[in-house]
C-alpha cells in the first residue's frame, strides 16, 4: 500500500513538472465522416457535437462498428471530417500532431527500437538534446515500472507491459490530450484491471484530457468522468452520462450501488438503441 502511495506521489511530481493543466480543450463541431462516394457512401459518424473540458476523462462507449474509433481518429487527425470541424485548444485539427498523444489497441511499439528508444521517440524527432532524452526515458520508464527493461525489445515484454510503454511513449511527448483506442482490449481481465488503475493514477497526476474509446461498460464507468454513448448506422451520440463516483477509484467500486445504477443506465441506452437498429434491419 505504501508503495502505491509513493508511486502516486512520484507521479504527481512528474505531472506538475510538465504542467499540462488548462490545456486540452476538445471541441467536435458538427462532425460528419463518410467513406466512399456515390451509392456506396457509408456514413461512419453523423452530425456529432462534443465539448470536452481540459483535464476531463471521457469514455466513448458503443458497440463495434458504431464509429467511435472513427470519431477518435478525426480528433487524432488521421481522418478528415467530411463536414464540420474538430478543434483542440481552439486550433482546428489538420492532421496528427504531437500535442495529441495516441495509444492504439494493437501493440504499436517500434519492434526494432528498445523500450527506452520507443519512449523517447517523440522528443527525439522533435530534436531535443540527447541528455534531455535520456532523462525523459529514465523518468517515464520509472513511471510505468519498467526501468529494468530499458534496453529490452518490445517482443520481450508481455502485452500489458507493452501497452504501458505505449502510454509512456505518448506521455513522454508532453501532449495536452491523450487519445486511447480500446487500449486494453487485447489484455486478460486481471492485467486489464491493473492497467485501468494505473491509468487513473497517471491521469490524475498529469491532469491531461483523456478520450478513451471502449465497448466495455464496466471499463467506461470505472474510468470516466463522463460517458458518451454512441450508436451504429449512422454513428451518432445517443447519450451523455456524468459519472460522479468518488475518486480515487479502486476495484471494489465495481460492486457499489452507484456503479450498478450507472451500469443499468448504460445498458438501457444501448439496449433501446440496439432494438431500434434491429427493428430497422428486419424491415
Amino acid at each position: 500500500m505504501k508503495e502505491v502511495v509513493s508511486f502516486t506521489e512520484r507521479l504527481a511530481g512528474l505531472g506538475s513538472q510538465r504542467g499540462s493543466v488548462g490545456r486540452g480543450h476538445i471541441r467536435v463541431d458538427g462532425v460528419t465522416i463518410s467513406f466512399g462516394s456515390g451509392r456506396k457512401t457509408h456514413q461512419a459518424v453523423m452530425e456529432t457535437n462534443l465539448d470536452i473540458r481540459p483535464g476531463e476523462f471521457v469514455c466513448i462507449l458503443g458497440p463495434s462498428g458504431c464509429g467511435k474509433s472513427t470519431l477518435l481518429s478525426s480528433i487524432a487527425g488521421y481522418v478528415r471530417p467530411s463536414t464540420g470541424e474538430v478543434l483542440v485548444d481552439d486550433a482546428p485539427v489538420r492532421g496528427p500532431g504531437p500535442e495529441r498523444g495516441m495509444v492504439f489497441q494493437q501493440y504499436s511499439l517500434f519492434p526494432w527500437k528498445t523500450i527506452a528508444e520507443n519512449i523517447v521517440f517523440g522528443p527525439k524527432v522533435a530534436g531535443r538534446p540527447k541528455a534531455e532524452c535520456a532523462a525523459i526515458a529514465a523518468t517515464f520508464l520509472e513511471m510505468v515500472g519498467l526501468t529494468k527493461f530499458a534496453n529490452a525489445y518490445p517482443a520481450e515484454l508481455s502485452g500489458g507491459m507493452q501497452q504501458r510503454v505505449g502510454i509512456a511513449r505518448a506521455l513522454a511527448n508532453s501532449p495536452s490530450v491523450l487519445l486511447m483506442d480500446e487500449p486494453f482490449g487485447a489484455l486478460d481481465a486481471q492485467t486489464r484491471l491493473m492497467m485501468q488503475e494505473s491509468l487513473l493514477e497517471i491521469w490524475s497526476a498529469f491532469g491531461i484530457t483523456v478520450v478513451f474509446v471502449t465497448h466495455d461498460v464496466d471499463e467506461a464507468i470505472f474510468l470516466a468522468d463522463r460517458i458518451v454513448i454512441m450508436s451504429a448506422s449512422p454513428g451518432s451520440v445517443i447519450a451523455d452520462l456524468k459519472v460522479t463516483l468518488p475518486r480515487p477509484r479502486s476495484s471494489e467500486l465495481a460492486t457499489s450501488e452507484a456503479f450498478m445504477g450507472l451500469k443499468r443506465a448504460c445498458h438501457e441506452a444501448i439496449r433501446a438503441e440496439s432494438l431500434r437498429a434491429f427493428a430497422q434491419q428486419s424491415q
Binding site: V125, A170, N173
Partner: peptide, 28 residues
C-alpha cells in the same frame, strides 16, 4: 504496419523521419 506509421505521425515525426525510422527498419 500502418499502425506504426500512424504512431510515428502522432508523435510528431516528419515524412523523412517516418521513412528512416519506421518504414525502412520495417522493410529491412
Amino acid at each position: 504496419p500502418e499502425v506504426l506509421v500512424r504512431a510515428a505521425k502522432s508523435l510528431g515525426a516528419s515524412p523523412l523521419q517516418i521513412f528512416a525510422q519506421v518504414i525502412f527498419p520495417a522493410a529491412l
